Simulated scan of single mutants.
Amino acid sequence: MSTERENFVGLSSALLGIGKALLAPSIDPIDLPSQFLAYIRPKLTEAQLNDLLSQYASLVADQQSPEQIARALLMSNGKPAATPAAKACRSIMKMWLLGVWYQPYDASSFKAGQQWVVSDLAYQQSWAWKAAQAHPMGYSQFHFGYWNETPPSLEAFTGVPAKGQQGASS
């Protein structure tokens, strides 16, 4: 039986197209999945979060591929779904990509459209930086002079094949 955290990582992986091992590495001092899960629980409501994770677990049990899972959660009749679950999924994607939570609907004292930076680490470690092969201003794990070298492939950052191109094209 999967844990709530494992289901959240699996759901996030299916939505983003980024491997589970990259979202939640086995050695991870930051542990963004646990931070994100705790952060969104009150903002989605416990019932909605449980329903969303149960829906994901059910789709996995039905042996749906990650692409099929994402489509089932995000789409309706070939168009973006307007359900609370689909809105929550889109906000989860934005959180992983930007480190910012965009409130998808009214829940308790949280109003649709509000937004918050989850944490400084969530912002620094957000996937938009990895996809852009960049880093936020004022923070870098790269060595001095790295900008003078050809960057690693996009696959090295995200695990997504970069179709043979090294670094960003100009």
Score class of each variant (00 low, 15 high):
residue 166 Q to H: 07
residue 121 L to C: 10
residue 49 L to W: 02
residue 47 A to C: 02
residue 49 L to A: 01
residue 4 E to K: 13
residue 28 D to I: 10
residue 98 L to F: 05
residue 2 S to N: 11
residue 66 P to H: 01
residue 43 K to M: 11
residue 117 V to E: 14
residue 167 G to M: 03
residue 129 W to I: 04
residue 41 R to P: 00
residue 66 P to L: 01
residue 66 P to Q: 00
residue 132 A to E: 15
residue 166 Q to T: 03
residue 133 Q to A: 12
residue 6 E to N: 04
residue 108 S to E: 11
residue 129 W to M: 06
residue 101 W to Y: 08
residue 39 Y to M: 01
residue 42 P to E: 08
residue 94 K to D: 11
residue 168 A to I: 09
residue 157 F to W: 15
residue 73 L to Q: 02
residue 119 S to D: 07
residue 168 A to M: 13
residue 2 S to G: 00
residue 129 W to C: 03
residue 29 P to W: 09
residue 161 P to F: 09
residue 75 M to P: 00
residue 20 K to R: 14
residue 14 A to Q: 13
residue 144 F to S: 07
residue 19 G to F: 09
residue 111 K to E: 08
residue 79 K to T: 11
residue 68 Q to Y: 01
residue 21 A to L: 10
residue 47 A to I: 11
residue 33 P to N: 05
residue 40 I to T: 04
residue 165 Q to F: 08
residue 115 Q to I: 03
residue 146 Y to P: 02
residue 38 A to R: 15
residue 66 P to R: 00
residue 98 L to S: 03
residue 133 Q to C: 11
residue 105 Y to R: 10
residue 17 G to L: 02
residue 77 N to E: 13
residue 78 G to S: 07
residue 125 Q to V: 05
residue 24 A to W: 08
residue 130 K to R: 13
residue 128 A to L: 15
residue 170 S to A: 11
residue 79 K to A: 13
residue 131 A to D: 05
residue 163 K to L: 13
residue 78 G to L: 05
residue 112 A to Q: 15
residue 60 V to T: 12
residue 67 E to R: 13
residue 110 F to S: 04
residue 113 G to I: 06
residue 42 P to H: 07
residue 64 Q to D: 09
residue 152 P to W: 12
residue 140 S to M: 07
residue 116 W to V: 10
residue 142 F to R: 15
residue 5 R to P: 00
residue 119 S to G: 05
residue 76 S to C: 01
residue 14 A to E: 13
residue 102 Y to K: 06
residue 158 T to N: 08
residue 26 S to L: 13
residue 73 L to K: 04
residue 9 V to R: 01
residue 10 G to T: 06
residue 7 N to H: 06
residue 95 M to Y: 00
residue 150 T to R: 13
residue 112 A to F: 02
residue 48 Q to M: 06
residue 6 E to K: 07
residue 25 P to F: 01
residue 73 L to G: 01
residue 18 I to F: 02
residue 65 S to V: 00
residue 42 P to I: 10
residue 89 C to S: 12
residue 78 G to H: 07
residue 63 Q to F: 14
residue 72 A to I: 00
residue 140 S to V: 11
residue 9 V to W: 03
residue 64 Q to I: 05
residue 152 P to I: 08
residue 33 P to A: 06
residue 11 L to D: 04
residue 20 K to T: 11
residue 122 A to K: 08
residue 57 A to C: 07
residue 107 A to Q: 14
residue 58 S to F: 04
residue 138 G to T: 02
residue 156 A to F: 14
residue 148 N to Y: 12
residue 19 G to H: 15
residue 64 Q to F: 12
residue 94 K to C: 09
residue 66 P to F: 02
residue 74 L to M: 12
residue 163 K to R: 14
residue 86 A to G: 09
residue 10 G to M: 07
residue 125 Q to Y: 13
residue 119 S to N: 04
